[in-house]
Design a protein around this nucleic acid. Structure first.
Length: 597
RNA sequence: GGCCUCGUAGUACAAUGGAUAGUAUAAGAGUUUCCGAAGCUCCAGACCCAGGUUCGAUUCCUGGCGAGGCCA
């Protein structure tokens, strides 16, 4: 258990001893105690805020602080060595022996921070691509978030099923298909040497160009715009194709399969490159049918109702929302229909305790409705549904728009980062003895490290801005900074191999040594926070802070030329644990760390 | 029109009902005979506005202004 959580019950205990009442009875809970890191300008490691008690106990903060501080030190000399009170704050100093004991029992544990299996099963649905366009920067945020949250939960003892729902049907897919029929002349990704998803994406764009042209021609011929938009031959063809698809017309199905196949080949390359993987794929072309069945059941059971025109609805006015359409009058499904069916199917497949949906925040309302409907239907899994809502990645000018060609393509982005990594590395000239394949791997590690860190370091809920003019930095609060720190430590450890036997207790810690240990000790609590919040950014921030703290220590104190042999052993342990925790934290973000760079 | 987010240095991001609001970048000044300078040190610079609750509000509440999103 982390030291901060050990302190709380001790404080409660002393309060009880000192003031003769059960503190819980007079309103104190452990959770209400505020204990913070002591600010660097004051003496101490952790600080108890005293204002909370002042009123109930009718004592001045100074008096309270001194009484509690003295009692704590007296009762727990092995933990606390000193205290001081400034204004309403009780600063506590933790004994060096505690920190040293902690270090010695954990420094070589590469699994520090992991938790044993807890028997809970969680599905994480992420990525969820559309088969008519390649993956872009916004999808990358989704992929990295989903993968990382899954990893964080996995290391914390949860059983994880990563799933992906592919949007592979509907009018938009037909647009790409008809465009291919009209313009491709039988071309394929192979014949044009194009990545499959990009190939199909081009025909989707081509559709829109042609459609616009046809509408303009019709309008020029005297037709009204709305009518022209319906009458444009390419659009009529698309609608026909959708009908043919739903009716299973063989040549349409064949084309659909072929073109989706191309897209999947392209996606596979990208997923492999960025490290996304899934345990279970779902396809909307399959889930829309259970969705309809789901609605039928809801009708029978009475939660849904049918209007005169035959459309099916649910009334959510009692919940402060409105009436929501779940099936169109022609019997075709809307988005929510499919999602209802899919939720049911996922539960039947895996019997999960929790189901996390990594979906952009523009779907907040939709997800709220989904959960609400499932709840109204009394589904046992409704409460376990959790929307991990993330903000859009925007350009300085606003949202990315495919029509304006401002979409940042994922493959291009990765490629660009690899080039930058190569250039920067060559400039520094530290990799002369690397083989060609080692270099390729290193550039990949750095490039993806920079990209993932950049997208994960921000609170998922907040939208973030990416400026394509400035390529992602390698200095400061970045992945490569952390990776570099790791490489430096590994360099030290190569020199000090086999020399990390136990250091004697009683060694008094210098400030920068203690700062590092305190941070290391907080790692499990940080992971816990990331688990509760489903938020990888706390890990990114932590790992950066740790790397920074190491760098400060490193310039000030020598490891291999330490003042004494004991100090050297201690620092080797300290540094090894730092490397382990950096590697561990980065792995939770899906980022590899190099031995040398 | 209704509902939901969000307003923190030039820029990009943190944190917190509590001590002087952190970090990075960019700008300025240093730093390499000594374990890796993708580093380190110093120096500047911000809580949208107005009320309210509180011993204490950047944080919670209300209103305004501004940005974004969703619904029909």
């Amino acid at each position: 258990m982390s030291i901060i959580n050990q302190i709380k019950p001790l404080v409660i205990k002393e309060l009880k001893n000192l003031y003769g009442q059960d503190p819980i009875a007079i309103g104190f809970q452990e959770a209400e105690l505020t204990i913070n890191n002591t600010k660097p300008e004051f003496e101490g490691d952790y600080t108890l805020v005293l204002f909370t008690f002042v009123k109930q106990l009718k004592k001045s903060p100074e008096q309270l602080g001194n009484e509690i501080g003295e009692a704590l030190v007296k009762a727990n000399p092995d933990i606390f060595t000193a205290y001081n009170v400034i204004k309403g704050f009780l600063n506590l100093t933790i004994s060096d022996n505690y920190w040293l004991g902690f270090l010695q029992s954990n420094f070589s544990n590469t699994k520090f921070g992991n938790q044993p299996a807890n028997g809970r099963k969680v599905m994480v649905e992420y990525s969820s691509p559309n088969t008519n366009k390649p993956i872009h920067l916004g999808h990358l945020r989704n992929n990295f978030l989903g993968w990382s949250v899954a990893q964080i939960l996995k290391q914390s003892g949860y059983e994880i099923i990563k799933s992906c729902i592919v949007n592979d049907r509907g009018i938009h897919i037909c647009k790409s298909m008809i465009s291919w029929q009209l313009f491709a002349n039988g071309a394929s990704p192979q014949s044009t040497n194009t990545k499959g998803d990009h190939f199909v994406g081009e025909y989707y764009v081509r559709f829109n160009d042609e459609y616009k042209k046809q509408v303009e021609e019709l309008v020029a011929g005297g037709m009204k715009k709305e009518e022209a938009e319906k009458e444009a031959p390419i659009m009529k063809g698309t609608h026909q194709m959708l009908l043919d698809w739903e009716n299973g017309k063989p040549d349409v199905i064949e084309l659909w399969k072929t073109m989706n196949g191309w897209v999947y080949e392209g996606f596979d390359v990208t997923y492999k490159r960025i490290g996304s993987d899934f345990d279970k794929m779902y396809y909307e072309s399959e889930t829309y049918i259970p969705g309809k069945k789901f609605v039928e059941e809801g009708l029978k059971e009475g939660t849904f109702f049918k209007k005169e025109d035959g459309s099916v609805w649910i009334d959510l006015t009692a919940e402060g929302l409105d009436e929501k359409l779940v099936l169109r009058k022609d019997g075709t499904s809307v988005y929510i229909t499919q999602d209802l069916g899919l939720a049911q199917e996922k539960y039947e497949d895996f019997n999960y305790d929790e189901s996390i949906y990594v979906i952009a925040d523009e779907q907040n309302y939709h997800m709220k409705v989904l959960k609400l409907i499932l709840k109204k239907l009394g589904k046992p899994y409704a409460d376990g549904i959790d929307h991990l809502s993330y903000g859009m990645v925007e350009l300085p000018s606003g949202r990315m728009k495919s029509r304006e060609g401002t979409v940042v393509d994922a493959d291009d982005m990765v490629e660009e980062m690899v080039n930058v990594a190569k250039k920067k590395t060559e400039e520094l000239g530290k990799v002369k003895n690397f083989t060609e394949s080692e270099l390729v791997e290193l550039y990949d590690i750095i490039a993806l490290g920079a990209l993932k860190f950049f997208l994960l370091r921000v609170d998922p809920k907040k939208r973030m801005i990416f400026n394509p003019e400035e390529s992602i930095d390698f200095h400061g609060f970045t992945g490569p900074f952390v990776q570099y720190t790791h490489a430096r430590i590994k360099s030290i450890l190569r020199k000090g191999q086999g020399k990390r036997e136990k250091a004697p207790v009683g060694n008094s810690l210098l400030k920068l040594e203690k700062d590092l240990i305190i941070l290391l000790e907080q790692y499990p609590a940080i992971i816990e926070q990331a688990v509760v919040e489903h938020n990888p950014s706390v890990i990114a921030i932590y790992v950066f802070t740790l790397a920074k703290s190491f760098n400060t220590f490193y310039t000030e104190h020598s490891v291999m030329n330490a003042e004494s042999e004991e100090k050297k052993q201690l620092r080797l342990q300290l540094v090894e644990m730092t490397a382990n925790v950096i590697a561990s934290g980065m792995s939770l973000l899906g980022i590899r760390v190099p031995e040398r760079m």
